[in-house]
Design a protein around this nucleic acid. Structure first.
Lengths: 209, 209
DNA sequence: CGCTAATCTAGAACAAGTTTCAGACTTGAT
DNA sequence: ATCAAGTCTGAAACTTGTTCTAGATTAGCG
């Protein structure tokens, strides 16, 4: 009789299902990754250290995550799920869609400010990722889109609204980068977010029927 | 009598002036960097190869550019100067400021499409740069801002307009990244640019005096 | 010219991401 | 219980960015 029963992963795509111990390994790795990242950011996440912290051989680490960037992007997926859950509990209270989106993003931004090193590791990995990580990065993007659409209160957005959301995501990522590298202040990021969110208002014609 | 006369660099900041041979070395290095980048993108720019191609010792390369990212960001500064010069010659013809900015950015985008690997190397370096490269990255950002303000036909922008420009830059960088990593099509980038450029119209109240 | 400090060179050495491999352990099926 | 296939481990090797060193070369000056 097999010692480990199979376990099903929810969101992940056509990955062969993992056994319990494998799932546990995967969690240990992601936990170690986030922990090291929280200390010293991107550079502090050293593959040998991640392997050691998570009690896994280096080769195994690379079997689970084929590169450091893959690992950090997966870490981001993980954190984003948390975040989305948290945000769902307390929906933003703004009047307009653009206010609610800005409020949501600022809330996320404040969460990132609490762990700036972790934010650094995740965001740098995300923007540095090359084609080999596209599927994973895309997943992060879809998750982010979902969060924004949630804040807008939309279920089926128009193409124009999707464009606006895409631009908002661009701004979000890039503004984070400039903040993380010390080239923009927190206040500046706030302004940029509020500025870009006004785009949303352009996609809903004024109420003048 | 000194064999090499001192030579003054225009735009660079408080760098001690370089001799002619030093200036020549610097150019050789930047040329080699761009050439290697044009082949295989970020990964193809290997410091040893750059040193060899530019007939300079590895240690010297590092004296001129303290890291690979510094080198590639400097390469981008270099290319941006070209670009700005080229764009000045044929100013965009659009009616509105937002049309002209979008046209300008699309022109730049088409230039990048001709050397996608070079674009990859430069943009990845730019967004991966950490604090130690902030001054150089900031210089690139100022140059980009200047290009956009040029297209808008402005000399002294309002704070609101500067915000809009900043968001446009964010979108520009991030959209390039998604294109370079194969997650967005050329058409999509075009739409994103056009979408974000509409922000400019929000900073100039409608002509209803 | 001849000196001193700065710069450049060749090459070794080091650091961290990634790959590889032989041998031990698990899994799933019989 | 046993076997074949797949997985994990530990360790070494390889790659490429970065640092260091000793000895040449060059720059600037009296």
């Amino acid at each position: 009789m097999p010692v480990e029963a199979k376990v099903d992963i929810g969101a992940r795509s056509a990955t062969p299902p993992l056994t319990e111990r494998q799932e546990a390994r995967r969690r240990r790795i992601l936990h170690a990754s986030a922990q090291l990242a929280s200390r010293g950011g991107f550079d502090a996440v050293q593959m040998r250290e991640v392997a050691e912290s998570s009690q896994v051989a280096l080769g195994t680490l690379y079997r689970y995550f084929p590169s450091k960037v893959h690992l950090l992007v997966a870490t981001m997926q993980d954190q984003l799920e948390h975040m989305h859950g948290t945000l769902r509990k307390k929906p933003p209270a703004g009047e307009t869609a653009s206010e609610r989106v800005a409020e949501t993003l600022m809330r996320a931004f404040r969460a990132l400010q609490r762990e700036p090193h972790l934010a650094d590791a995740m965001v740098r990995a995300l923007t540095f990722a090359d084609r080999s990580v596209s599927p994973e990065v895309d997943q992060v993007s879809r998750q982010t889109t979902a969060i924004i659409l949630d804040a807008m209160g939309l279920t089926d957005p128009t193409p124009a609204q999707l464009s606006a959301v895409r631009v908002i995501e661009h701004t979000w990522h890039s503004a984070l980068i400039t903040w993380l590298s010390g080239r923009a202040s927190i206040a500046q990021v706030k302004i940029d977010i509020e500025t870009v969110c006004r785009l949303i208002d352009l996609t809903e014609p004024e109420k003048k029927p």
